[in-house]
Amino acid sequence: MCRDTACPGTGSPSPARILDYSTLTDQQVVQLARDGSERAYRELIGRYQRPVFSLIYRLVRDREKAEDLAQDTFIKVLNAIDRYNPEYKFSSWIFKIAHNTGLDHLRRRRPDTLSLDGSPHARTAAETEASTITPESQDETPEQFTENRELGGEIEVAMGGLRAEYRTAIVLCHVEGRPYEEIAEIMDVPLGTVKTYIHRGRKELMQKLEHLRC
């Protein structure tokens, strides 16, 4: 068995590079990481940095903060890789940690307004508004400039007004193309709740977009 650490050769490409990691399944890459291959760790980061960062960025809507939280997510997952239960999909695991890391941050920031249990059943617009996380206003920084470019579009602004749970469900469904069953596993809620999140989220988006166009 030829792994990157065990292979001789100084110049690139070394014989280890013959093993094309991109053709391996997540489970196979995880196994190589558990065997001590740094390249396997980097392959996992390469595969999931965009999806994980995108999800967290849309949750916290602050580029710098999202980088920190995405970094925390990867550090937590990769340092626990030898304890990972391969019966589950790796993607579900890392998305679950990412979602929870994002929510924890939002909870710490707005402990008074974000009620995770009560808010899915907000009945009035005021209740919904109260449980919605909106970006903090701050002076224009380079990050803010990028954020305005990235999240300033009509649909992204409307997304920003949704409850965090709706946002995660919609991003996982529409951006990541995850099936409802996996989203339920990631968010740790019943399948019916995922359908409700997505349905209500879309409905709110319709209303917000209509409002933006008027």
Binding site: R50, H174, V175
Partner: peptide, 13 residues
């Protein structure tokens, strides 16, 4: 709405 959602991009760190 569906086409707007399906065109939402992923972002790079």
């Amino acid at each position: 709405l569906f086409s707007a959602l399906s065109s939402l991009p992923q972002f790079d760190p």
